[in-house]
Design a protein around this nucleic acid. Structure first.
Lengths: 229, 229
DNA sequence: CTCGGCAAACTGTGATCACAATCATTACGG
DNA sequence: CCGTAATGATTGTGATCACAGTTTGCCGAG
């Protein structure tokens, strides 16, 4: 198709940003499988835009290591998830994200930010709902929203962008996990623990809750990666 | 000027990669001052290439937060170094880089890698020479080379790229520091400690040496940032 | 039916142009 | 002499084209 159905997406921001968000979402929700090859023109056609803004978005994603470029071919692909990569990503996430959570709780407590608690509870309800329905896409979106609604309150731009980049790299693996293990939780509700820590203004409690949450998720991914390619 | 003096740079890799390296180097050595505005066309003219590969390189640098883009203007600039930014960058570096150093020592010890010791000693001699001469550019290049010659041996691609990104963001500040404090060291030679730890196959020693090295450097930067914009 | 080779299609890269928005400078009015 | 409006220059963005390298698929020879 040339560009018959130009999707409206969301106005106001530049096209290459919309393309970035679209590809990012497709990556995180696993609509583009790890290891699969993509191309500028195919993405452009699929999104109904010219190859130019796709090029910009892809450069950005490659810099964030959410897309890989074969140095011989120079062809694009979604990076495959190896055990080593997962191990390093786990380590990095386990350092950054609990730190962000602790800072967020500290700052929110200082500002007596009551709205944040309600916001997180609402999102967490959405997470549980998605888990109950087995809606993987919705779960991943809500889970992402939960973590970053919290992290954003840390007021730590640099660390926040690091966390965003790591999340983006881990995203494709999550889909694999839930395609294998199923969305049925049997997870202790670490989100509730984090909210409780936020209410109690217990920064270190939030740190531990988020660390536990990540740890359990990453363990599942590790098991999935080890059990099969 | 159109493109009269096409600099040879280095062949073999794509133009946008050469442009990336050129801008990166200009950023790290401080040839482009923090806070200063740049433009695609001016960079292109300066490097003797068309705006197109510059565009690609800039996208990458923006994704790495080595360049900033004003959301209103959409104009490019080198991000200013604020105290908060420096604090977060310090924290992140103090986590990633000692970890990389420890892993590198462990791996090098397992492989009985004797060449690495000699290589690091040679680079460190270069660092000391540059310090003695007060050659800031040369010092920063050699210092970078020292750290990453070590880190590369860790075999941790993800962490390595994180460290690279952080270093790139901190680079501009270094120049400010040495323009202020002067290149005269009065630093304990943490590099020598790191090399000693490598020889002794003491991973934790290397971790501490690198942490101390970073800590002292970042302290100087912090002092410089606090004393004046 | 299988294997080798050629041609067409597709890939990323770079250049050039058009356009709307913004900035800087200049000239004019007070 | 100072402040304001208008014009020209510069900015990022997107589109389109050309090109060289690679892959893909098809066709025919054995």
């Amino acid at each position: 198709m040339g560009k018959p159905a130009r999707k409206p997406l969301a106005d106001s921001q530049a096209v290459h940003d919309q393309v970035y968000d679209a590809i990012r979402q497709a990556l995180i929700t696993g609509r583009i499988a790890p290891g699969k090859g993509v191309s500028l023109r195919s993405l452009a056609a699929e999104l109904g835009v010219s190859p130019m803004p796709v090029r910009d978005a892809v450069r950005r994603l490659v810099a964030e290591r959410a897309l890989a470029i074969n140095p011989a071919n120079k062809r694009l692909s979604v990076p495959s998830l190896t055990a080593e990569r997962l191990e390093q990503l786990s380590l990095a996430r386990l350092w950054v994200e609990p730190e962000l959570a602790a800072r967020a709780v500290t700052r929110a407590a200082a500002q007596a930010d009551a709205g944040l608690v309600r916001q997180l509870q609402a999102i967490d309800a959405e997470v549980d709902e998605a888990l109950r329905l087995g809606d993987v896409d919705r779960y991943m979106t809500a889970n992402h929203a939960f973590h970053f609604a919290l992290y954003e309150r840390a007021g730590a731009e640099v660390l926040l962008s690091m966390a965003g980049g790591l999340w983006l790299q881990v995203g494709p693996f999550m889909r694999v996990v839930f395609g294998r293990v199923g969305a049925d939780g049997l997870v202790a509700d670490r989100h509730a623990e984090a909210i409780a820590a936020l209410k109690a203004k217990d920064a270190d409690g939030a740190r531990r809750a988020i660390a536990a949450d990540l740890s359990e998720g990453m363990d599942k991914m590790r098991a999935a990666v080890e059990s099969g390619p």
